[in-house]
């Protein structure tokens, strides 16, 4: 009885086509052998994928993005776990406010964050540094990481810890033998989500990146603002492919649906 009728399935097909169309078009155009944007009508060519390797700007930007994403995701997780433990385990004045404060960057438009970080770094003379960029990304990705860590900490069976204590385990042993393994999937999922969010960030970064610390999305934005060519399509196709791989990894470690719901 609870099945979809034909009109519902047609609607669904159109919706999925709408979602996938731009991604498919990018992947197709990336294989063109022409010097301009076109569909690969006369056979596939890897010309524009080889062109990526000859563009040092993009290669450099990729490494910058990678370092920033690795650094910010790791820092965000390291500070998120104790916060999650404090919020879930303790009842203390300001608990609600503290949680809301740590999740607040979700409410702030990235443009506003970008403006603020730019002003801040200019005032303290810290403009365009790698460390500065990593720290700003921590602020942006931490709410995503914290939400997943909070969920896995709250879902933790406290009786398992009590059982370990009753069997003679000390506080530290309980933490690293019981607590950490139990929240690890959530922590790992949070890290990957933080990594992806940082790697994709454009709007805030475009304000604070200097020529030497230009991330891949910023480099791509400036490139598209000048010209749209098959090179940018092949780079995007690579990004789509890498994201697909990461999605499979995420699905294995934590369940992709749970992470995507967390993104909302």
């Amino acid at each position: 009885m609870k099945t979809n009728g034909t009109p519902a399935l047609i609607f669904h097909a159109l919706f999925v086509a709408f979602i996938l169309a731009p991604l498919i078009v990018i992947c197709l155009v990336a294989f063109t052998d022409k010097g301009y944007m076109s569909l690969p009508t006369d056979g596939l060519s890897l010309r524009w994928f080889r062109a990526i390797l000859e563009n040092q700007d993009f290669i450099d930007a990729f490494w910058v993005s990678l370092y920033i994403a690795l650094g910010s995701a790791t820092i965000a997780l390291v500070v998120s776990v104790p916060v999650a433990l404090a919020v879930v385990r303790y009842s203390f004045p300001g608990r609600e406010g503290l949680t809301a404060f740590f999740l607040s960057p979700l409410m702030i438009p990235h443009v506003v964050l970008g403006v603020s970080f730019l002003r801040f770094f200019t005032e303290i003379g810290f403009t365009g540094t790698m460390i500065g960029l990593v720290l700003t990304h921590v602020i942006i990705v931490m709410p995503y990481a914290l939400r997943l860590v909070l969920a896995s900490t709250a879902g933790l069976d406290r009786d398992a810890e009590k059982a370990a204590s009753s069997l003679g385990a000390t506080g530290w042993t309980v933490f690293h033998r019981i607590t950490v393994p139990l929240i690890l999937p959530g922590v790992a999922g949070g890290w990957v989500l933080a990594f992806i969010t940082s790697f994709d960030e454009l709007t805030m970064t475009v304000f604070v990146a200097s020529p030497s610390t230009t991330t891949l999305p910023v480099r791509m934005y400036h490139h598209i603002a000048q010209t749209v060519d098959p090179l940018i399509a092949s780079i995007s196709a690579v990004l789509i492919f890498v994201t697909l791989l990461l999605m499979i990894v995420l699905d294995r470690i934590y369940g992709l649906d749970k992470i995507l719901i967390g993104k909302g």
């Binding site: 999925v16 169309a21 731009p22 991604l23 994709d200 749209v228 999605m247 995507l260």
Partner: peptide
């Protein structure tokens, strides 16, 4: 669910580029 929500993990700039091409 993954097909529809998965694009959230793909950079906005990539998805926008797709529309520019379309």
């Amino acid at each position: 669910l993954v097909v529809i929500l998965g694009p959230l993990l793909i950079s906005v700039i990539v998805r926008t580029l797709g529309w520019a091409l379309l």
